[in-house]
Design a protein around this nucleic acid. Structure first.
Length: 437
RNA sequence: GUGCCUGUAGCUCAAUGGCAGAGCGCCUGACUGUGGCUCAGGAGGUUGUGGGUUCGAAACCCAUCAGGCACCCCA
C-alpha cells in the first residue's frame, strides 16, 4: 500500500465547482418533483442482502455484499426501487395511496467503470405507488420532460414502449418468453448497430430468417405515436396481451398530450427493451444524441415487484434519473448554472482601521439574504483581494473605504462586466439581486 | 467478467535507451483605492506505485493502482 492518497475505483470526489453543478441538478429536480406533489423519502444505502435477491435479474452479481462481524450478510443498494418496495411493504399502514414519492441519493454497482458509468452513482427516483391509472404513467413522462427542459436540454427524446409489445414481437416471431431474452437485447441495440446488425445478431441467436424480418419490420417503425400504434396494432393482430398494451399506450399518450407535453420530445419506440426484469407495463427512457452517453434516465411500470414484499399487488410506475450522466453531459454541453461561485458578493477589507466597518456591512448584506464572502487580511492590497474574488468567479465585489464612509455610500463592482457604481448601502443587496436574477 | 489503449509540473502535452522540456496556469514586481491585458523575474518533478532488465530507464519487461475505448450490461 503506497502512501499516496487516492480515490477508490469508480468512486468520484466532487470539488466545489462540480458540486455546484450537482446541486443545481438536484435542486431543479426537487423543484419539479414537488411541483407535481411528490414527497421526499430517504432510506439507508445498506439493506439486508436477501432483500435485494431475485429482483433485478442477471445484474445481481454486481451488488456489493459484505458480512458483518455477527455473520449477517448486508448489501449496498443497487438502486432505489427495491428499497422503495421494502418501505411500502413495511409501512403499508402509515402510507396513503396513491403515494407519490421521490428519493435522491447514491446507489452502488460493482461494474467496470467507463464514461458515464461509475460504481457509486446518484439517482433521483420518482414513483407513483398504488395506482394502475395510465394518468400516472403520463404524469411521470410529463415530469421527466419538465426536469430535462428545466435543466437546459433541448435535444432529448423520451422513448416509450411497453413490456407486452416487446413480448408480442417475440411471440409473433414464434418465440416463447423464456427464449426471447436474446431477441430483446438484439433489438435494443437497433440505434447502435442498425437493421443489418440486428438481423445478423438475431440470426446468430437462432431466430429463423422469416421471423427476423418480421421482428425488424416491427422495431423499425417510426413516426407520430398514433401512426406507430396503429401499425403495431395491425401487425400484432391476434396477440391479446399486445393489443391490451397498445390500448394502454394510447391512453397514456392521450393524457401526455392533454398535459401539454411537447410532442417533439417523446416517441413510441418498439425497439426499446429495458433490461430490468421487474417491468410489467409501459417502459421509457430518455436519450440525447450529443454527446453519446446512453440513456439519461429509465423507468416504467412494475406492478408486481412491491407485491413480492407486501404480499398483495401494489401497482407502481416510476423512473430513475442518472445524476452522474446528467452531470457529465451538462458539463460537456456547458449548460450548467450561470453562476459558478456560491458567494454572490465579495466584501473587501480596505485597511486594518476600516476592516470592522466592512464586517458590519457584510453582516447587513447577509441579513438581507445575499451570500457574502469577506476578505480575511485587511493588510492585503486591494488588487490582491479583487484578483482573488475574480478567480473565485464571485460576480460582485464591494469596497468600503474612507471616501465611502465619509460620504455615506458603498462602491459596488460587477466583476463580470468591470462596471462599478456608488450606491447607498441600503440599496446594495437589492441591486445585486436584481442584476443576478 | 473479457480484450485493448493511456498515466511525465496545477492543466494540456513534448522528450523512443543517454543532462526531464514547452505552452497555459501559479508566485513576485512594474501598479500604495480595483481583477482580466502587457512586460520582467521566479518557484514548481522520486516521470501513478512497486519490482526487474541495462553501464545508463519517462521509454523495455512483470505486477499493481487509476482513467479511457470496444464487448457484456446498464443510469
Amino acid at each position: 500500500m503506497n502512501n499516496k492518497p487516492q480515490n477508490v475505483k469508480g468512486m468520484r470526489d466532487h470539488l466545489p465547482a462540480a458540486m455546484i453543478v450537482r446541486q443545481h441538478i438536484i435542486e431543479t429536480m426537487r423543484r419539479v418533483f414537488e411541483r407535481y406533489g411528490f414527497e421526499p423519502l430517504q432510506t439507508s444505502i445498506v439493506e439486508h442482502s436477501e432483500t435485494l435477491d431475485g429482483k433485478i435479474g442477471d445484474d445481481e452479481k454486481l451488488i456489493y455484499r459484505f458480512e458483518t462481524e455477527g455473520g449477517r450478510w448486508l448489501a449496498l443498494r443497487y438502486d432505489q426501487t427495491v428499497p422503495l418496495a421494502r418501505v411500502v411493504a413495511q409501512y403499508q399502514g402509515q402510507l396513503i395511496f396513491p403515494w407519490r414519492r421521490y428519493a435522491i441519493g447514491p446507489s452502488y454497482r460493482g461494474e467496470r467503470p467507463a464514461r458515464g458509468r461509475y460504481r457509486e452513482l446518484w439517482q433521483a427516483d420518482v414513483d407513483i405507488v398504488g395506482s394502475r391509472s395510465p394518468v400516472a404513467d403520463a404524469e411521470i413522462i410529463a415530469l421527466l420532460t419538465d426536469v430535462l427542459s428545466e435543466l437546459g436540454f433541448t435535444g432529448f427524446t423520451t422513448l416509450i414502449n411497453h413490456r407486452q409489445i416487446i413480448g408480442g414481437i417475440a411471440r409473433v416471431a414464434g418465440l416463447d418468453d423464456a427464449s426471447a431474452g436474446g431477441v430483446y437485447r438484439a433489438i435494443d441495440k437497433y440505434d447502435k448497430i442498425g437493421a443489418d446488425g440486428v438481423r445478423e445478431e438475431l440470426l446468430r441467436g437462432g431466430v429463423a430468417a422469416e421471423a427476423a424480418e418480421r421482428i425488424l419490420a416491427l422495431v423499425t417503425l417510426k413516426g407520430p405515436p398514433e401512426a406507430v400504434l396503429g401499425e403495431l396494432s395491425e401487425r400484432l393482430m391476434g396477440d391479446d396481451r399486445a393489443q391490451a398494451a397498445l390500448v394502454n399506450l394510447r391512453e397514456i399518450i392521450g393524457s401526455v398530450q392533454a398535459m401539454g407535453v411537447d410532442p417533439a420530445r417523446y416517441t413510441i419506440a418498439p425497439q426499446l427493451a429495458r433490461g430490468l426484469s421487474y417491468y410489467t407495463g409501459a417502459v421509457f427512457e430518455a436519450v440525447v444524441e450529443t454527446p453519446p452517453m446512453g440513456s439519461l434516465l429509465g423507468g416504467g411500470r412494475y406492478d408486481e415487484l412491491i407485491g413480492l414484499f407486501a404480499g398483495r399487488s401494489i401497482p407502481t410506475v416510476g423512473l430513475a434519473f442518472g445524476i452522474e450522466r446528467l452531470h457529465d453531459i451538462i458539463t460537456e454541453l456547458g449548460i450548467g448554472p450561470a453562476q459558478r461561485a456560491i458567494a454572490d458578493l465579495f466584501m473587501t477589507l480596505f485597511n486594518p482601521d476600516l476592516a470592522d466597518a466592512s464586517l458590519g456591512l457584510a453582516n447587513e448584506l447577509r441579513a438581507a439574504g445575499l451570500r457574502v464572502e469577506i476578505a480575511l487580511d485587511a493588510r492585503e492590497k486591494l488588487a490582491k483581494q479583487f484578483q482573488y474574488a475574480d478567480r473565485r468567479a464571485i460576480p460582485f465585489a464591494a469596497v468600503l473605504g474612507p471616501d465611502e464612509l465619509e460620504q455615506g455610500y458603498v462602491v459596488l463592482k460587477d466583476l463580470r462586466s468591470g462596471e462599478q457604481q456608488r450606491l447607498p448601502r441600503a440599496a446594495l443587496a437589492d441591486t445585486v439581486r436584481a442584476t443576478l436574477a
